[in-house]
Write a protein that binds this DNA or RNA. Structure first.
Lengths: 148, 148
DNA sequence: ATAAAAAAGGACAATTTTATCCGAATTAAG
DNA sequence: CTTAATTCGGATAAAATTGTCCTTTTTTAT
């Protein structure tokens, strides 16, 4: 199976976008609500939100009225940041054929063509903010759960 | 961890390119030689070559002087074909956020931006033949194993 | 203070992917 | 026909990812 992002990363992106759709009201959201909103397994999502809080992308608050909220402005959080936290930078700098060292001086057979694809992907992730993504959800132009 | 291709697919691509570098001599290569040439675990590579032979991308011959060879011309085998066989078409048609159904009428928040990336990737894989990739290896411009 | 509500954290289970091993089947060559 | 060289196929193991469960800790509200 080919994957572009891990499940953990997919859920992270969706969770952070969801929080951004509610941050105009500066509202926290609790785990069950988040998991429901993005259609993810609750216990697994808990681990992920924990990790995002540890990495300072979210703020977590325990106790009644607690929950999770964005740490900072939605327009200053890029998709790149989330992917980097959850999956590392191998998607941006790794080799398509798995070379430990793939470079212009010792390239794999698809090095140049995939460099262009990686740059394209990296550019999209760097320039897409959570605010932008959340905007399309707010306007009903996109969704956080799939049809069945 | 983010991956673009599975290990099985990485090894497949490298193995097929290796066979193409030897096909001018119309030579078969045996498993140990292939695994050595591409730096892959031999037993796992055996399973992969088996699968490629089952799917008619390779021809396998048992017994003394046996081995594997390309089934058809190297310039008529695209990277796309190999990826499709080994990893299915989810990289080409799947949703970056894992939606079962992600479409223009019910898109995920990154649908359009990732459609462009997928199209870019699909184009590269469709238009890159094994012959072309093997050519760069033959000319010493690219390699099938990484430096350490 | 106490009780209730939430996240934190550890242990564990399930699934998928990657990898190994070995005997069986097939084929070529003498 | 026999032997040796190969791939084939099944069983199994190891590792990574995904997922669950339960107890502890922290915090709010009464």
């Amino acid at each position: 199976m080919i994957i572009m992002f891990s499940k953990a990363c997919e859920y992270s992106i969706k969770a952070v976008i969801y929080l951004a759709t509610r941050s105009e009201q500066n509202q926290r959201a609790r785990l069950p609500e988040i998991a429901e909103a993005i259609g993810s397994p609750e216990a697994f999502t808990a681990k992920i939100l924990q990790e995002l809080a540890r990495k300072k992308l979210l703020i977590s608050v325990k106790g009644p009225k607690g929950g999770f909220e964005l740490n900072g402005d939605a327009d200053e959080i890029s998709l790149y940041k989330i992917v980097e936290i959850m999956d590392g930078d191998s998607l941006f700098h790794g080799c398509a054929l798995g070379f430990k060292k793939c470079s212009d001086v010792h390239p794999c057979p698809v090095h140049n063509k995939f460099k262009a694809i990686r740059d394209h992907l990296t550019g999209v992730l760097l320039t897409t903010s959570i605010k932008e993504a959340a905007g399309t959800v707010d306007e009903g132009q996109s969704f956080l759960t799939s049809l069945k």
